[in-house]
Design a protein around this nucleic acid. Structure first.
Lengths: 235, 235
DNA sequence: GAGTGTGAACGTCTTCACAGCA
DNA sequence: TGCTGTGAAGACGTTCACACTC
C-alpha cells in the first residue's frame, strides 16, 4: 500500500543527486537482507545473491546493481559488495544512523500491536510516546510506556526533534489527529486508518491499509478462479 | 509496501484484456470513496471530485478516467459517473461480490489486532479461522473465534474454497507457515512477517512491513533535516 | 457548458547487453 | 574469469489536450 511519493525532490548543490523513489523503496529490503548476511558472518555478496535474498518480485541482479550505483556504491568487480560497507552506506542514506522517535496515536487493538512490536529498536526507531483521546485509556501501561492524553502531543513532539507520527485511530479521527501532529511540527506520517489524509506541502504521508491489500489479492484470486483452463500450450 | 505483482498476466480469450497493476492497486481506493458517497446519498461523481476524495498522491482526474475506462466504464459526458453503478462494477471486477474467507495464522499481538479489526466484513472478507502453533494459545477465544492448532489448516482451507492466507507469525516461522498454506491450496498470501517468502508460480504474495514503511519515511525526513536552506529563489 | 474517453507525448522504471576492472 | 557499472532499449505509467457527447 504505500503510496504518496516525496513532495519536493529538492536536489540541493552539495547533496547526492536524487535517488529514484523506486530505489528508495527497495533500500530497506536490501538492508534487511544484509543484516541477515552480517549475522551469518558473510563478508561479501554479489548482486545476484542479494537479488535472490530480497525475494522474487523485488529483485533482479540488474536492478540491484542500478539501485546500489545510485548510492555511489563501491562494489568490487569480479567479487561483489562488501556487506559491512553496504550496511553503513544504506543506513546512512536512509538516515538510520540516529534512531528516530515515533509518536503513536491511538492505542486500540492495532496500537497495542504496534507498541508491542519488538522490531522497532533494531530497525532504527523507538517509540517515544503513546497517546490516546480516550480518558479511560490514558494512564494504561502498554509495552512499557504509559498512555498519555492528546494534550501532551505538542510537548512530546517538541521535546523530541523531528518525530515520525503513526496514526492508529479509527478513520473518523484520523484527519483531526493528523492536523494536530502537523501543527505540532511532525513532517512524516504513517497512517493506518482507512482514509485519505490532507496535508500541507512538505509533509509526507504513507499509508497502510489492510483491506486494500486484501482487495488487491482478491482481484488476482478472482482472476485465477474464473480462469478454468490453465493450459495455453498451443501456439 | 506492496510489492509482488501478479505472476501470470494470462489474458484469456473471453476475459477483459488485462487491467494494469497500477490501476488494480487504485480500484480499492475508489471503492472506499464511493462507499462514502453512497452513504451520503450522492448519486453522481465527476472524475475531478473522485480524484480529490481518494487524496493527493493517488488522484488526478485524468488518472481516474483512464483507470475507469479500463473497466469498460459507463460515465456520462457532461455529468459524471453513476455512484451505484461504479460501486458494483468495481466490486465485481475485484471479485468482491462474494466474501472471501481469510485464514489467519499467528495470533500474537498483531494477530489479535487483525482478528479484532472490524472493517473486514464490510470490505468483502470474513475471518474463517485463526491458527497458532503455540499449544498454549490454542483454544483461546479471540474476536469471537477459537484459536485452532496448525494441524487443522488443511481441513480449514479445504472446506473453505480458495481462502486467502494471512501470515502474522514471527519472521522465523513465516516461510514454513507459507509452505503449509500453499500445500493446503492457498494461492493468495498477505505476509506481515519481515521476510521474503518463496512461493511457486501461480501464488501471489503481498507484504506489509511496518519497519520498511518507517524507513522510507525516515529517508525523506532525513533529507528534509539535512536541507537547511528552503530557499531556491535565485535563478 | 460540462465532463468523459482516448490517442499521443512525456517521464519513470526495468531489462538488456556489454565494456571495464579486479 | 567473474562480477560490477552503465549507456541504450524497452516496458510501463502518467499527463496532456482535445474530440465527442449529453
Amino acid at each position: 500500500v504505500t503510496e504518496r511519493a516525496s513532495a519536493g525532490e529538492r536536489r540541493r548543490p552539495g547533496s547526492r543527486p536524487g535517488i529514484p523513489d523506486a530505489t528508495v523503496a527497495r533500500l530497506p529490503l536490501y538492508l534487511r537482507s544484509l543484516h541477515g548476511l552480517a549475522d551469518d558472518g558473510v563478508a561479501t555478496v554479489s548482486s545476484e545473491e542479494l537479488a535472490r535474498l530480497v525475494g522474487g518480485g523485488a529483485g533482479s541482479p540488474a536492478k540491484v546493481r542500478k539501485d546500489l550505483s545510485h548510492l555511489g556504491s563501491y562494489g568490487t568487480r569480479g567479487v561483489g559488495y562488501d556487506v559491512a560497507q553496504l550496511l553503513t552506506t544504506i543506513s546512512t542514506e536512509l538516515g538510520l544512523i540516529r534512531s528516530w522517535p515515533v509518536v503513536l496515536v491511538g492505542v486500540g487493538n492495532l496500537g497495542h500491536a504496534l507498541a508491542g512490536y519488538g522490531g522497532f529498536a533494531s530497525r532504527g526507531f523507538r517509540i517515544a510516546a503513546l497517546l490516546d483521546a480516550d480518558p479511560a485509556r490514558v494512564g494504561e501501561l502498554v509495552g512499557g510506556l504509559r498512555v498519555r492524553p492528546m494534550d501532551d502531543l505538542d510537548g512530546v513532539v517538541r521535546e523530541q526533534g523531528g518525530a515520525i507520527g503513526v496514526i492508529a485511530t479509527p478513520a473518523e479521527a484520523a484527519q483531526q489527529v493528523c492536523d494536530r501532529l502537523v501543527a505540532a511540527g511532525v513532517r512524516s506520517v504513517l497512517n493506518f486508518a482507512p482514509t485519505a489524509l490532507e496535508v500541507p506541502d512538505g509533509v509526507d504521508v504513507r499509508k497502510v491499509d489492510l483491506a486494500v491489500e486484501l482487495q488487491i489479492l482478491s482481484f488476482h484470486e478472482h482472476r485465477k478462479s474464473s480462469a478454468p483452463a490453465p493450459l495455453e500450450v498451443l501456439a
